[in-house]
Amino acid sequence: MDEKIIDVSGVSKRYSVGDRQISVLKDVSLTIHRGEFVIIAGASGSGKSTLLSLLSGLDQVSSGDISIQGHLLNGMAEAKLAPLRNQLMGFVFQSFHLIPSLNALENVMFPSELQKDPGAQDKAEELLKKVGLWDRRNSMPEQLSGGEKQRVAICRALINKPLVIFADEPTGNLDSTNSREILELMMSLRDEYGATMVMATHSNEIIAQADRVYRLHDGVLSVETTN
């Protein structure tokens, strides 16, 4: 539990909008250890998604350092970042972001297929069975309900047994029943796969289950609780 997985030091992120510079994150530092369930909380527009995209190497910092399992992400070439994301990270988004042209099974298989894993289909089928979507494996994303889409997205995030799962408001687009089910599913699969989870949310129900909660306010990060 003490092994450092993510180390963030003095990170800032600024965007230019016309002549204006907008500072989204200001001097953020944090550390995440193996197996932790970390919440990034904060109001809408506080910079949660931006921080998540920086932690996962989806975006680049303006200043500061981020490293994941010893790999410094700053300035890392896209060619090196891509396999890191594929093998170390899994993603679950509020808007699901399933590939619209692939069916449920193909969406789940996709990250594994990038690795040329011959067992991709078996793994994907197993995951879909676990989340109760075996019957829906051939459905296209637009034929699935919100809850079903999110379950497919969770399977897709887990197929490569990632070190870290980044989840951005995973229940934000779901009703309360579906939210509860998805959260339970994520927690049980996280336990089963032993992944670290970093989640951006403002749901108190989820916050209560976290190992550690960071709160973002106007781009400034503070530690709120540590369980």
């Binding site: 896209e78 060619a79 042209s101 990038l114 490569n160």
Partner: peptide, 16 residues
């Protein structure tokens, strides 16, 4: 664009 962003997020390389 969004699809490309998603598959890049999943680790697809530029070559892919």
């Amino acid at each position: 664009e969004k699809t490309i962003g998603i598959i890049k997020a999943m680790g697809a390389s530029r070559g892919f």
